[in-house]
Nucleic acid binder design. Structure first.
Lengths: 220, 220
DNA sequence: TTAAAATTAAGTATAAATACTTAATTTTTT
DNA sequence: AAAAAATTAAGTATTTATACTTAATTTTAA
């Protein structure tokens, strides 16, 4: 196995030196260059392409997340590991969105650091367990949603009749009363009344509010 | 601070004994009971309620994920930490869906184990970095989507003018042409024309389609 | 088996949106 | 400075939605 070529990007010399010292004992990693800010890093990348970039978030001129973003669109195969002092939601989520392959806190142990490097270098992701609250909560809110607390859906402060739900679902397809009427084989006036009644029940005064309301309470 | 009361759920005596031995040296944790499968665990919970459950996934009679699921709907405040031999996608994702607060591999270090316990006990989530590939990849597919490969947004097959975008955003708040006109201090007829033009550009024929389109191309 | 609720649909009136066209001003780009 | 694009707004006609009320049937629940 060839060694993994690394570029360090951090504005503190001490941090870079520390990491270099640490990696000197590991023959599978080779620090080939270093930069003290994002712009410098991108300059280096024009000439030398490493396998992995270890990037600090907070840096002058161009921060780590911007670097990752840029790297990701320009050199898609280059791996990026964020090394941050902070576990803020903003940093973590933006790192993921930017396409970072890993996220470590500077307080991590040497063992975890090396494990993260190996994982990321071999195509995996490594986000320290310390930031999993952020990731999982974001994931839950976005996709799986509830599960803890109340796993049932929001209680409706109103009750639609069966027919009204039918009309609602057709209305939410963008159909007019005339079209609703044709589809359900009733008079246009009937469709109008149902629509009128259900909008009154839901206390909305236009289609936009209606569709939001329907989504919120996942009617239909 | 009171000690954290724990119940161990694992079908291997040796594993339970190992964890007990490990936690005996930590005065903030107290193993109050143990079970060798899910059903047994739920039986115990009817009488004693701990703060935290450490659960193995593979168990006879009732597996760990089912236990977590059940615990989550019956005792929502009880924390659950999955201890697994495996980092399969199925296990990890199902654990999250079931509402587990943490996920550790049995190969974890003592330090990580204790950190995970503390994090979970205090209301956080702790998913070991070893499983972050799974979580992040799933997250990307589900929510953030692209970022690697093509990080740009969908190309618009049409171009709205600045004014049209303004009108659009107000229209999407459910406002009528009259209201749009008042807000932008133009005549109602002007608002009508803008609305007409933008709906034609977007090739939609009602508000529902318009709001879907706006969401899809994240206009506004 | 009644009473209550739901479905149907008409009447009446007003407001709003749709579907254009034409065209005078501004603003922006070349 | 000229051409192109954007903003403004009027005209005209038709369709659709809103805002009710009243009321005849059906269906459902007590």
């Amino acid at each position: 196995m060839e060694e993994i070529r690394i570029i360090l990007v951090d504005d503190h010399v001490l941090v870079r030196d520390g990491i270099k010292a640490l990696l000197e004992n590991e023959q599978e990693f080779l620090v080939i260059d270093e930069a003290s800010n994002g712009v410098e890093a991108l300059e280096i990348l024009k000439e030398t392409q490493p396998d992995l970039l270890i990037v600090d978030i907070r840096m002058p001129v161009m921060n780590g997340i911007e670097v990752v973003n840029e790297v990701n669109s320009t050199y898609p195969h280059l791996k990026t590991l964020i090394l941050s002092m902070h576990d803020s939601e903003e940093y973590v989520l933006n790192s993921i969105a930017a396409g970072a392959d890993g996220y470590l806190l500077k307080g991590s142990s040497k063992e975890e650091f090396l494990k993260a490097l190996h994982t990321v270098a071999s195509g995996g992701k490594y986000f320290t367990g310390d930031v999993s609250s952020i990731i999982i909560n974001n994931m839950m809110g976005a996709t799986v949603a509830q599960s803890k607390k109340e796993s049932s859906q929001k209680e409706l402060p109103f009750k639609l009749t069966k027919r009204e739900k039918q009309i609602l679902s057709i209305v939410l397809q963008g159909k007019s009363n005339k079209e609703v009427a044709k589809e359900l084989e009733v008079s246009k006036r009937t469709a109008e009344v149902h629509r009128y009644n259900l909008m009154k029940k839901l206390d909305v005064k236009n289609l936009i509010e209606l569709s939001k309301m329907a989504e919120e309470y996942n009617l239909i």
